[in-house]
């Protein structure tokens, strides 16, 4: 968007000013990215495909969370909302096809999100962090309560398929790519609508926004609904990918990873690229830690069971480093590169 252009870059029409892709290069870059993602299944082993699917799933959740955090509505119940989406899908998947279960899971999570988000009218900033902490544990407990009679609390999801045809790895990959693309397209455009502007205003000072005519109840509820919907859809995708869900898949810690690593490290306010970068960070750190522990265990046997702890340390260090060195997140690095090439080769 036009706001962060350096001096010397001139837009001559309103359409050019508002256009989503500022330069031909951006079309090329997006085209190349899509081409690589589409061709990847034929080149890379399945391990990488799984990693990309996980990045897509977490990316979608973080997109919704990013929108919410932009309005300074801090939420740490998003892992639980994903859980609600996943369980809704798991229970419905035996009867309904995926194109119905995924939106229904999203709507279910949206409803729960609005329910726990409504106190945000009365409570502000970090108080909301407390109430969503409570929400996370209460939802987790409810999920455990629902599945108390099922051994291991594990609910199986029917595999993805359409009218008797079972989807393989390839179909699932393309389907998830398509869903991610649609969700990313929508969230990118939400940032440009009155809703997106209202989010920024509420984030600055919500009572000031109210004086300017922003209906707080409406916009906060919408923000929680959208965010919940994204988390629900992501949880639904997760459920189809793993084939079974248990409440332990969505712990409190994951909520903090989503908010801390996903939103803050990725880049607050950068709905698409910030979210994707944050998601990449989560998955990459997880994989690297697992690899590291596998490699190091023969030399340091005490490391064996602590991949989980090592990962937490890495996350903590990354969050701390980003907060001190680059408070706007990784997306602002991207922006800096872009800024540099705006005036390349003759910058002032």
């Amino acid at each position: 968007m036009g706001s962060s252009r350096p001096c010397g870059v001139i837009k001559e029409s309103y359409a050019a000013d508002m256009s989503f892709f500022e330069k031909p290069f951006h079309y090329w870059a997006i085209g190349l990215l899509i081409l690589i993602l589409v061709l990847l299944p034929f080149m890379a082993p399945e391990f990488y495909l799984n990693a990309i699917l996980l990045i897509a799933i977490f990316g979608i959740t973080i997109m919704g969370l990013n929108l919410l955090t932009q309005a300074h509505l801090f939420s740490v119940m998003h892992a639980a909302l994903m859980g609600i989406g996943a369980f809704t899908t798991a229970f419905l998947s035996q009867q309904l096809p995926f194109f119905l279960t995924i939106p229904v899971a999203g709507l279910m999570a949206a409803a729960v999100s609005v329910f726990f988000g409504l106190p945000s009218l009365r409570i502000k900033v970090f108080y909301l962090l407390f109430s969503t902490t409570a929400a996370q544990f209460i939802i987790e407990w409810i999920l455990n309560w629902i599945t108390r009679d099922i051994p291991g609390s594990a609910v199986y999801t029917a595999p993805l398929g359409l009218m008797g045809y079972q989807f393989g790895v390839l179909e699932q990959y393309y389907l998830y790519l398509l869903i991610t693309a649609i969700m990313a397209y929508l969230i990118a455009h939400i940032g440009r609508t009155p809703l997106g502007k209202a989010m920024v205003m509420i984030g600055e000072k919500d009572y000031a926004a109210q004086i300017q005519g922003v209906d707080l109840l409406k916009f906060k509820a919408i923000a929680f609904a959208i965010s919940g919907f994204y988390a629900g859809v992501a949880g639904s995708m997760w459920s189809y990918m793993l084939g079974l869900v248990t409440p332990e898949h969505f712990p409190f810690l994951m909520s903090w990873e989503l908010l801390g690593v996903g939103v803050i490290v990725g880049g607050l306010g950068s709905y698409v690229w910030g979210s994707i970068l944050g998601s990449v960070m989560i998955i990459v750190v997880t994989q690297v830690t697992t690899e590291l522990v596998t490699v190091l265990t023969p030399y340091m046997p005490w490391l064996g069971a602590s991949a989980f702890g090592l990962r937490a340390i890495f996350y903590g260090i990354i969050i701390a480093a980003i907060l001190i060195l680059e408070p706007q997140g990784l997306a602002s690095l991207l922006r800096k590169v872009k800024r540099y090439f705006d005036l390349w080769p003759f910058s002032y």
């Binding site: 908010l259 801390g260 903590g316 260090i317 969050i319 907060l323």
Partner: peptide, 8 residues
């Protein structure tokens, strides 16, 4: 978020 990082 810094205290979250500390906690982690």
């Amino acid at each position: 978020m810094m205290t979250v990082a500390l906690g982690m």
